[in-house]
Design a protein around this nucleic acid. Sequence first.
DNA 1: TTCTAACCTGAATCCGCTC
DNA 2: TGAGCGGATTCAGGTTAGA
Lengths: 360, 360
Amino acid sequence: MGLELPLDQILVGDCIAEMQRLPPASVHAIFADPPYNLQLKGDLRRPNDTLVDGVDDAWDRFADLATYDAFTRAWLAEARRVLRKDGTIWVIGSYHNVFRLGAALQDLDYWVLNDVIWRKANPMPNFRGRRFTNAHETLIWAARGEESRYRFNYAAMKALNEDQQMRSDWFIPLCTGPERLRDAAGAKVHPTQKPEALLHRVILACTNPGEIILDPFLGTGTTGAVARRLGRHFIGIERDQGYADAAAERIQAIVPLSETAALTMAGKREQPRIPFGTLVERGLVPPGSLLMDRARRWSATVTADGSIRCGRAQGSIHQVGAAVQEAPSCNGWAFWHVELPGGRLRLLDEFRAEILGLQA
Amino acid sequence: MGLELPLDQILVGDCIAEMQRLPPASVHAIFADPPYNLQLKGDLRRPNDTLVDGVDDAWDRFADLATYDAFTRAWLAEARRVLRKDGTIWVIGSYHNVFRLGAALQDLDYWVLNDVIWRKANPMPNFRGRRFTNAHETLIWAARGEESRYRFNYAAMKALNEDQQMRSDWFIPLCTGPERLRDAAGAKVHPTQKPEALLHRVILACTNPGEIILDPFLGTGTTGAVARRLGRHFIGIERDQGYADAAAERIQAIVPLSETAALTMAGKREQPRIPFGTLVERGLVPPGSLLMDRARRWSATVTADGSIRCGRAQGSIHQVGAAVQEAPSCNGWAFWHVELPGGRLRLLDEFRAEILGLQA
DNA sequence: TTCTAACCTGAATCCGCTC
DNA sequence: TGAGCGGATTCAGGTTAGA
């Protein structure tokens, strides 16, 4: 390999320069919370005349859109080099910058998979009453390229949402209370610290335990903290020494979850493949058995080599299932049943689950 | 003045050419639902093998992103000429095109005021389980320029939202049922007809009665129908004669409402839904926690994705609750408890109530 | 007539391994 | 690397058919 990856470390420096020192195709995922280019004009005051503590740090100011675009394209290009072929990138922004980010991603041959809306449970109201309450931010989730076979932990996301598909709109509170890092005077250490719940969902969605997530704009280290808790490795890059110090201290204090607690639901795709022939070999469905669909409309006979026959149609459980229904395809495991002595039908998939259970 | 405005008419033709014939600074608002450039490849089937009727119309196909960008900038530039100085524009899109739209708006010196999320009550699921359910579309709301004194009907929006500031995320159902235009054979007339509830909110937000809203991609005329109902004038441009005819017939049948009656047409109220995974993400019941039934007869471990495990059984709080009791079903919220430091058991439902209280 | 169950559908960039 | 094929995959709401 040559280069050693700086796992679970915070690199203090410019994110482009630091990424250039990483080997290509080396990280499984990237989460990036770049400067928003907010361009606030003057002070913003609440109706009671108190001053809103907005983002006016130097790192968030750019001369113009062209400068911001050049910066965006430079770090996104470097990020793409560092990203593994099956890796994905998350980028978060608001309407000030997210269109620049999205267009740059597309122009650099990333392939957008979703835009995800972080709906804030407790957004700051619009004090002037001149616009809609800006109650969300946008995350763009993209693969390295159009043909990428990227990772998506579908079953884990579904489990997180009580057994329904996870949607593209996420309702999560702002980072407040004890989670929010504050200095001795009680001031926010970082103006845009992201909630850990947001990173929890991001990291579970696209990485497995032991894999590596890179954050080129680490800030006060939410990505590192959640990665460590969930048993993932992180690489953080942060230009500001003060933020980096706060992040290091914060991440150090995180207690990683036990291996079992970090284990999420495995989808069927992740489970070992069992050929139907195995059921025949082991005598669970002996040759000569009769298979039937749920409505007992069709039946087929099991042969010794694990193929089945229904009239003139012979082939796999899938092929014959498709043939009798005149359907383009068929999952034979979820179609064919065996009649038990009492007359009840038992799905082939249940026999398979029995074998998978014995293996575990 | 010279030129007479074609009020409450549908101009059949290319939107750029037709806009060029309108005088400058003549309309108060623009709503534009341009082609999304979806780039669908093969066909898509539901798990039950039925075919999804995707958008494959010729008007949605572009050679590449550069062609799409050129088209976008051309019509946006013409729209800006036609827009009054105090006018605003709404543009709707999905992740396929919305970044191109937003970047073009900014480059043409429009000033983005909000991005607004249309959260769909009933989106189409992701049938292959390869991405998050694409459950929203994005509207960009922009003024003609940075210094524009644009109109925003703050009080009307607040009234529509039970006297709270209107947020940037709107929960609105798809256009289905009787509202959806269908031909004699029952086929949808237009593949992407927008719901009237969406336009209702848009038009109320940025126009007054008697003012003019322009739609350069009228389609089957939702903008015209809602404008007429709300006592606004519209100018519609549509290239396809069939769509234009359907729109004309539809708008003709609309009965204008009084403004007070219009205000009563609020959006659908959403029921909050808290999945168990939310408690896990937010750290109320962290991964690794032990759940117990009231009699402490069974216990289960919480994992990072909100599933729980008891022996070999893993699944939702409901599934595992049912499994350990050998019952057909179980309400996990009312079954599982967490042991508090003092030893007292606290029901999961109480944690959920806590979150619901915060949201209200 | 009324209730229930089955069926239909919506702006969708929707598979992945083996040979 | 392209073909072949195993087999994984859906939610809400409206409409229609049937009991």
